[in-house]
């Protein structure tokens, strides 16, 4: 059993290393703005990967993960700006604090069915960021908190773009989340989660503690969201109520589902969508030279239609859709291959 676990950890390490290489290569090739987009994608990915596990493996709906991101964001902002903690420590603390909030909620959540949990998390997404407005002295009110941008260390050279440094920090954070979750989903805990999702009664009969397993999934996803929020604070240098509206919670939830839940690639597609879609839809709207109201609202309309169409076309999300597509292509290829063989004259 232990050997198996070690093999798993090695596999996870290899996956993370490959991802790190890819990320580093891409970030070194692109310009400053693209680096910032990579950084955005990385913090979204950290938040999404936990949510994806919660929905895909835990079978739970959370419409409030933006609130956990807010917790992580405020934790980092307070620790870095007021207490002058180093970034790594602040990010770890942000993850821990969000996990704690997640544990409180998760204990209750484990008893709740789909829409009831959705209701609780939705209210959480509305309620939690507003606390910042109630305590303006510590939390900065509507304007929130600002931190100084982290300066690239001197060994990277004086001309190293600060945006790339932000991308690397966020990328490392996202990789840490990836390593952790990759390991978890391939361990006993992951199997227990899947067993509970598929049949609570059967899982309980097999010795799974249903409530505890689901609470753990909730805590994990909250911790990931907190890390994502903390990374967002590093990337954007801000933590404030307006940055974590309900709309954010709904957006990451929708992205996670469209990317494909319960799959690490799904979280990747979801993060890519969150970063790229707003710019694409904005560019489309701009290129059509429409009147003010139409042009302003067109990106939103495109987003709305995309949510609907994506669910109708790929009920299992992009990742499942791609798998289907590649299956189709393989079949098409092999059949054509056989045709070619049987008919060499062509």
């Amino acid at each position: 059993m232990r050997a198996l676990a070690r093999v798993g950890a090695v596999r996870a390490a290899v996956v993370v290393l490959l991802a790190a290489l890819a990320f580093g290569a891409v970030s070194s090739l692109v310009g400053e703005y693209r680096d910032l987009q990579l950084a955005d994608g990385a913090y979204y990915f950290a938040a999404l990967i936990g949510l994806s596990v919660l929905i895909g493996f835990g079978g739970k709906i959370s419409l409030g993960h933006g609130a956990f991101m807010a917790v992580g964001a405020y934790a980092v902002a307070l620790l870095v700006a007021d207490e002058h903690w180093p970034l790594v420590g602040a990010l770890a603390a942000a993850t821990a604090v969000s996990a704690l909030v997640g544990a409180v909620l998760g204990a209750a959540a484990s008893r709740l069915q789909g829409p009831y949990l959705a209701g609780v998390t939705l209210t959480l997404a509305v309620a939690l960021p507003q606390i910042g407005n109630r305590f303006p002295e510590t939390l900065g009110g509507e304007n929130g908190l600002v931190i100084d941008p982290p300066a690239p260390p001197s060994f990277l050279g004086s001309s190293f773009p600060p945006q790339r440094y932000l991308a690397w920090i966020a990328g490392l954070g996202a990789l840490a989340a990836l390593f952790f979750i990759y390991n978890m989903t391939r361990s006993g805990a992951g199997r227990a989660l899947r067993a509970v999702r598929d049949d609570e009664v059967a899982a309980a009969l097999c010795g799974c503690h249903v409530g505890r397993t689901q609470t753990v999934a909730f805590v994990l996803s909250a911790a990931c969201a907190g890390l994502g929020g903390g990374l967002a604070t590093v990337v954007l240098q801000l933590a404030q109520p307006g940055a974590f509206p309900l709309e954010l919670s709904l957006r990451i939830f929708a992205a996670a589902v469209i990317g494909g839940v319960g799959s690490l690639w799904g979280a990747f597609w979801a993060a890519a969508l969150l970063v790229l879609l707003p710019n694409w839809s904005h560019d489309i709207a701009q290129s059509l030279s429409l009147s003010g109201n139409v042009a302003a609202n067109l990106p939103l309309a495109i987003y709305g239609v995309m949510l609907i169409v994506a669910m109708l076309l790929w009920p299992g999300g992009i990742q499942a859709g791609l798998r289907q597509l590649s299956g189709l292509l393989k079949r098409a290829y092999s059949s054509r291959h056989s045709v070619t063989q049987s008919n060499p004259a062509k």
């Binding site: 955005d40 801000l238 954010l248």
Partner: peptide
């Protein structure tokens, strides 16, 4: 939304 502000201003400048 300040998150968007940071994004679009970077886009405009960079």
């Amino acid at each position: 939304n300040p998150t968007q502000t940071v994004n679009v201003v970077h886009q405009l400048v960079l």
